[in-house]
């Protein structure tokens, strides 16, 4: 009866879940549109709060990363609760897959979402507030974004799994996220400051990338170690 069937491998299952999530997101655009609108709205608010037409250096880096961080919190909030809202969460738990496939898929989905969001946010920021024009000198932002996204995705997946079964999810997600993401914010904002200054340059870039890489590896391993406990039962 089951001759042709085997349980899918970890990555096959994760791939199937990720494709399903991307398809759902493309169809509804719920996370990306809300996060994008939020990003622009926040830039507008910062414009009035600082009464500036242009920003550069540490202020620019701070405004950019705080905006991204809050937008990320929105995405984290929806990450696993969306699975419930859509109605399929228990089907995932019933399936003969390694539970870590859910972790990998959600991690990858959040990573992709954040990357798209940051590309949009950076363009919008350059258009609205950033003093120096976008140039190839800012290319070292790429590894900063990459390492920030890995960390946010690992921590975000854990937090969304922890919060999704509580009855105060919307409150708990930001409260848990902000302190846990602070070291990443430190690294990302400090690394971006010279890159966003009027004459973009790099300074201590390796130090901040190193900090973020260390943070990422610890929390990626931790997420892998504890995720099953969060979603069992």
């Amino acid at each position: 009866m089951n001759e042709s069937k085997e349980t899918p491998g970890l990555f096959a299952a994760a791939g199937a879940i990720l494709r399903k999530d991307l398809r759902l997101e493309l169809r509804t655009m719920e996370t990306l549109t809300t996060a994008a609108i939020f990003t622009v709205a926040t830039f507008v608010v910062f414009h009035f709060a600082f009464d500036r037409y242009e920003m550069s250096g540490d202020i620019a880096a701070g405004v950019f990363w705080v905006t991204v961080l809050f937008a990320a919190v929105l995405a984290i909030n929806r990450l696993l609760s969306n699975e419930r809202a859509q109605g399929g969460y228990e089907a995932l738990l019933l399936a003969p897959i390694d539970r870590n496939a859910i972790l990998f898929a959600k991690f990858a989905f959040l990573f992709v979402t954040l990357t798209l969001l940051e590309i949009f946010a950076l363009l919008a920021f350059a258009l609205l507030l950033l003093g120096p024009a976008l140039s190839t000198e800012m290319l070292p932002l790429a590894p900063v974004l990459l390492l920030a996204n890995i960390g946010i995705a690992a921590i975000g997946t854990l937090i969304s799994a922890l919060a999704t079964d509580t009855n105060a999810r919307e409150l708990l997600v930001p409260l848990m996220s902000l302190p846990l993401l602070t070291p990443l914010l430190i690294g990302a904002a400090r690394a971006s400051t010279p890159l966003m200054s009027l004459v973009p340059h790099t300074e201590h870039l390796d130090r901040w990338l190193g900090l973020m890489a260390l943070y990422d590896s610890v929390f990626a391993l931790l997420a892998f170690a504890v995720f099953e406990y969060v979603i069992e039962d």
């Binding site: 921590i155 302190p179 846990l180 602070t182 070291p183 430190i186 130090r207 900090l211 260390l214 931790l222």
Partner: peptide, 15 residues
């Protein structure tokens, strides 16, 4: 998670 966070956070803020 928080226990692992404590030393890393100290390091980041110190840096």
């Amino acid at each position: 998670i928080c226990g692992a966070f404590v030393p890393l956070n100290f390091m980041a803020v110190r840096l």
